[in-house]
Design a protein around this nucleic acid. Structure first.
Lengths: 217, 217
DNA sequence: CGAATAAACAGGGAAAATCCCCTTTCCTTA
DNA sequence: TAAGGAAAGGGGATTTTCCCTGTTTATTCG
């Protein structure tokens, strides 16, 4: 049995209503207790620097204004690596997940949270130091293990934006406008990706993106 | 309570091993009993014409050589409309399902059958005269109710083949070769579909096909 | 620090593929 | 026989794709 310790949790979330119900939920779990809220990353910084009572775990929403989840995660791992960050997000595309994990996040939860899952996540975080949901594990497997042909892909920010836009009915020109780049640059992305991914045309790109969960329908 | 009648079932299936276990399963259900097997559609015809003891229900595999599920279903509804046909198939794409339903099939089961589901299907078939699984209902909802813009789509055989091939990296020319049609005819399909579906390019077509389950990854 | 190297970005030009608006032919069927 | 659909096609505009070159911006390293 686990000892009767109290684990503390901080919540950083823009959607205060959601955060409030999250707090209630967490406080209903044995051994866990929310000690503070923060509206965004900046707010969190202040809270942490002002208090000397640091939470063991922080729930971090990715989609926030002012200072988003990525920045916040970076700051946290840099300044308080002992705090375990559990990322919450609507997005389940591979790249977002990986981006957060690369920034030192210890767990990743999709936001349609079931109480038991959240409880499991918190427990595993404080016991094992990490939590990986089914989806995240799959993603890791997907992205960090080579594909059928032994390739590992790691897309840059711009490439990813391009891929996502290319999976729509937009014309390359229109994509160029949206990304504020020259059509020629876009063409460069396209060409490079076609070569790297060994695909023949845009349809190939769409299929690739779907298989890799870079986009969803 | 249902009366103690005995419902008879015929199985038409190419995979004899599967059919055998299916028979065992069915015979284990109360009130249901398998009275014959058939390897394919032709075989079934003979069996039916030779015997005067017709089954109440026939389990029909779609993927068969010689005389496939579609033809067989057609023949059955034409010559023995009183027999309830339950289609079994690996494919769960909308069009295949619809195609079978249009041929008078009374139920449709995906082949990863759970005993309880099969039992339910048989019971509903003999009691209500039809059975619709979750997936089939969804499909019907999907295809037979208008979409967001009030459109109903019903694709012809060739169109569907074209759509599926267009969702690959094949070139239109290559598609034309595969379908043994002139590239211009293919172009006609493309044009017509783009107009009907209000899409701008091939990517749009791929997305459409995916949303409608016409193809799967 | 400055030079070397790499990478992102942009362009020209041309071939191929796609997209679009039309007509004609043939066949089925009402 | 008229109507309608499927197949085939002409011709041209546009887009996509491809290859090669140059410029600017980071980054690394001697």
């Amino acid at each position: 049995m686990r000892p009767e310790t109290n684990h503390t949790v901080g919540i950083v979330d823009d959607h205060s209503l959601f955060a409030r119900s999250l707090e209630k939920l967490i406080n209903s779990f044995p051994h866990f207790q929310v000690i503070f809220h923060a509206k965004n990353g900046l707010h969190l910084q202040k809270k942490i620097e002002d208090s000397d009572l640091l939470p063991e775990i922080i729930l971090l929403d990715i989609n926030m204004p002012v200072m988003d989840g990525f920045e916040t995660a970076e700051w946290l791992t840099l300044h308080h690596p002992e705090i375990k960050v559990l990322a919450l997000s609507m997005q389940d595309d591979e790249h977002t997940i990986l981006k957060m994990l690369r920034r030192g996040v210890k767990g990743y939860l999709l936001k349609d949270i079931h109480p038991e899952i959240l409880n499991t996540a918190l427990k595993e975080l404080s016991e094992k130091g990490y939590y990986h949901s089914q989806k995240v594990s799959e993603t890791l497997l997907h992205s960090l293990t080579p594909d059928e042909e032994g390739r590992i892909f790691d897309f840059k920010e711009n490439e990813l934006t391009f891929i996502k836009l290319a999976c729509s009915e937009l014309t390359y020109k229109e994509i160029a406008v949206m990304m504020e780049l020259s059509p020629k640059t876009i063409d460069g992305y396209r060409q490079d990706l076609f070569k790297r991914l060994k695909i023949k045309n845009r349809v190939g790109l769409v299929i690739f993106a779907l298989k890799r969960n870079l986009i969803q329908l």
